[in-house]
Amino acid sequence: MPGMEGTELRIIGFLCNWCSYGGADTAGVSRFKQPTDLRIIRVPCSGRVDPLLVVKAFMEGADGVLVSGCHPRDCHYSEGNFYARRRLEVLKRFLPFMGIEPGRFEYTWVSASEGARWQKVVTDFTDQVHALGPRRNFGEGNGGGDIR
């Protein structure tokens, strides 16, 4: 289907079932309007998100990746989001070395009641990715030599 190219960017979100996915539901129920770029994948816990999955999404062409879980200490599985925080923080620092600008990846915490917060997170992150524009993929550009 044509039409969206050029206006929408490719953004993928991994959301934990108990808090952030519920927060996104709450935002929907409250009809809080959001940019349409984001596609959400539901996972049980932000700690389920393997950093390689985020890398995979970028390799496959994503312009932005967002991970969102429960607030620290509020994890449905006690400590899953602590694991997530540690791993994703390392990932965040590492991505620039792969040529992925820092602003293209974020992780955040949104609870199931925070519909308005979710709206803001999506809007801000989408704006941030739009400011960076579409991402040039590995191998695209000058002969595949320049990965920076």
Partner: peptide, 22 residues
Amino acid sequence: NIREHCSWIGEDREANTHKAIE
């Protein structure tokens, strides 16, 4: 989830339909 995460949060029918398909 094409309601809470799609039809209820955007007004652009074309963009929403596109998103729902994906």
